[in-house]
Design a protein around this nucleic acid. Structure first.
Lengths: 218, 218
DNA sequence: CACAAGCAAGAGCACCGCTCTCGAAAGGCA
DNA sequence: TGCCTTTCGAGAGCGGTGCTCTTGCTTGTG
């Protein structure tokens, strides 16, 4: 099994992915297949043997980027920290990752490509990222966040062991949206005239989130 | 003054802008100058007499979209409502506008075009949108949100009469980020597996924001 | 050894942003 | 009125794009 042919194919696939990532890092999400091809020393039509379409390549990159953010969060997380500080560490890691890899962040959370719908294979990767935050939030479940409809929607997360309570999971999701929104605004330059640099406002946001989620003990 | 020539020029400019908006609404932000030109019955090179570059056209559309969101918020706002409900109305109007005009929302708050920096002429338009929320937040200033550095950054907003206190303005900005983040995630399909439909989570978010901002009286 | 599959290359199609040149129309002025 | 300058639309063209198709070479297999 895994003959030379399969291995070469896998290697070339990986080289294309790496080239695409470099291309996106340097020139943004408007990555061109021809530029990627040039980078790996191929003619553009050859790349289509490995990724049938530009969108397929981007989707593969999205999955990869979720994995990278997941690993960044895993290595930043520290279960020994008190809840509020542990949440803050995850939040700072997310922001730092986004600022370090702007285009990758926007690949995941930015404007969807026209006519693009997140393919199923990205869902578990996205869930892995969210689970870090859900784990911390589970330490101190919030009650009374949302009504029965919302609780019903999120009951699945509790069943899968991703959350301690549906209400707490909802609160965490809302705070995740706040983190994504903050970073989106910062990367988009929307805070330039006001909260710039953005650290103080971000730290205040993290403190507020810890209070809202009841992570500071009590 | 305002001879026939100037008027014709203004009319054609407006027709191009309208065509561009329609094009973006139908095909997303990857609008093409040639498609816009076809829509107004011009050849592509003629469009460049009115907008020297694709980016210039997009910038004009961004300003226009800020204005539209501003008007949507102005017509939804109701100063007679109690603070929490008034905030919720603005939040719902923002979300409704974004869902109705997805591409326009993403033009403003989505992934910046590669190499794109928000031009100065967009700043007042963006401030007008934020001011609606700051006005409501001013009704019940939050204390102790952020430290002296943050207060110093936002002192300008207080001076301009846009906010009652720097601390309150900071809290409002953070909640604005939460709104943008929520809508971004929803439009990007990131809530599909969990809080879908998203209304219940959004309403829970609005309720939490009213509590956080102290808008429910007390 | 012969055959089939896999692959890179190249040409080509329709589209893109943008530039340049040209001719026609339009307004100002003597 | 007649000229002259400015404005503007059209068209061709450049280098780029995503993607397809054909052509041959290579490579592993029966």
């Amino acid at each position: 099994m895994a003959g030379v042919r399969e291995q070469n194919r896998a290697e070339t696939t990986a080289r294309i992915l790496a080239a695409a990532r470099a291309e996106v890092a340097e020139h943004g999400a408007d990555m061109s297949m021809r530029a990627v091809a040039r980078r790996v020393g191929l003619v553009s039509s050859a790349v289509y043997r490995y990724f049938p379409t530009r969108e397929a390549l981007l989707t593969a990159m999205v999955v990869e980027s979720y994995g990278r953010l997941d690993r960044a969060l895993a290595s930043a997380d520290d279960a020994d920290l008190p809840g509020g500080e542990r949440w803050a560490v995850l939040g700072r890691a997310t922001r730092a990752w986004a600022k370090d890899r702007t285009h990758e962040f926007q690949l995941i959370y930015g404007t969807p490509l026209p006519g693009y719908a997140a393919p199923p294979e990205t869902v578990p990767a996205a869930a892995a990222v969210a689970s870090h935050f859900l784990r911390v939030g589970a330490g101190s479940p919030v009650e009374g966040f949302g009504g029965v409809t919302l609780e019903g929607q999120l009951a699945g997360l509790v069943d899968e062991g991703l959350a301690a309570s549906a209400s707490g999971a909802a609160a965490v999701l809302a705070e995740l949206a706040a983190l994504v929104g903050f970073v989106t605004l910062e990367l988009g330059g929307h805070l330039v005239g006001t909260a710039d640099p953005a650290e103080p406002l971000f730290e205040a946001l993290l403190a507020r989130q810890a209070r809202t989620l009841g992570l500071d003990g009590g």
